[in-house]
Write a protein that binds this DNA or RNA. Structure first.
Lengths: 206, 206
DNA sequence: CGAGTATGTCATCATGCGATGACATCGTCT
DNA sequence: AGACGATGTCATCGCATGATGACATACTCG
């Protein structure tokens, strides 16, 4: 309620002192779109697709929810936009490579898991929504693992890759779900060795 | 609309031929409760709490949805009842024990993961609902692992136990989510060795 | 400076949901 | 057999949500 008056938004701080280099127009569709996507990314990751309302998104973004319909077409298309953004900003990650794993985990720790992780694990009608998220996960997590296993001539490469990806998704989600105390509190530093050992076991010991 | 007339319920099949030994009274509150819980267990596991409607539950159970309110108090209490049932019918399972793991996985394969697995991984307000499911998971999965690790004098026993439980939950959920093809198709027989190796890696190699 | 469009705001609609209560039917006990 | 409680059925309410369109204001271009 108190801070719910979004009329004068972030620009107040900006235009009082120096004019920003980006010259923030008080009306800026691109900025509004960006704010909406960012707010949606957080909320979708935090509460899932269904339980996030467009009013909440608008509230957090400081943007009228009606603009979601205008700029994206609806809640569903906004979700798809967040998945695409999640996809865009990072390269495929090989879970068995320690450096890549560290990078990935640190990013996930800072920003929370994106909506796609939930789609990996949550059942549901195969809507366009879930399909997009799952395609993303396959490209980002499963495919690299599969390629590695196939190159190493491991048997059942696809099954092993999916198994490791599912385990990883479970851990990441559980970490931010609040269900596991120690897991949530653990720093990436203490988590990484354990996580690495666990995932490495998806490859047969030789 | 077409099949929405549930007036003549499941009894039609029963009373046509032979009378059941249980002498099913045409009106039987206990039976209705049972049917509702069973239908709810399936649907909650299959589609999550939010996306399951009491009308669906009633439909599948062949029982009027209004009875949910009458017998349980509401959708939430029905959910709690399903979790309690999930809890009741099996002993704590040590994920590192091959036999127990097999038993558990086979049961989960037949009946699908219960609602509590989703609660482990899904974020959300700490409602009574999630709390119950999480308590259940701790007793069933985390605690046994912790005890084992502690007995073996492994460091960070709690963290390791939570990590393994989260990975297991992720795999089980992913398996029935439809997101991973190979994982879904895999027989318990082919899955078990891989799963066991993976979970065993939550204990440090010595 | 004025017109026209882009952007933002607001009220409102339609829908689906959980819940509730009135009513109908059955079962049991005396 | 009759009465009374238990069980089932149905219509409906209130609420939250996503969507929509009318209106208001700001920006830009001539």
């Amino acid at each position: 309620m108190t801070d719910a008056t979004p009329g004068a938004d972030g620009t107040t701080a900006a235009d009082s002192g120096r004019p920003e280099p980006a010259a923030p127009r008080r009306r800026d569709a691109a900025r509004s779109r960006e704010l909406l996507i960012r707010a949606a990314l957080e909320l979708f990751a935090d509460r899932g697709f269904e339980r996030t309302t467009i009013r909440e998104i608008g509230d957090r973004a400081g943007v009228d929810p009606a603009l979601i319909a205008r700029y994206f077409g609806g809640k569903t298309q906004l979700y798809l936009a967040t998945v695409r953004m999640e996809l865009g900003d990072s390269a495929p990650a090989d879970l068995l490579d320690e450096d890549r794993l560290r990078t990935l985990v640190e990013r996930l720790t800072r920003r929370g898991p994106g909506p796609s992780f939930q789609a990996a694990v949550l059942p549901g009608d195969n809507t366009e929504v879930q399909q997009a998220a799952r395609t993303y996960l396959h490209e980002r997590l499963v495919q690299p693992l599969h390629d590695r296993f196939a190159a190493e001539d491991v048997d059942r490469p696809q099954l092993r890759a999916e198994l490791a990806a599912a385990a990883f998704a479970g851990i990441i989600l559980a970490r931010s779900s609040g269900a596991f105390g120690e897991l949530a509190k653990a720093e990436p530093g203490e988590l990484l060795p354990l996580l690495h050992d666990l995932l490495a076991a998806s490859r047969p010991t030789r």
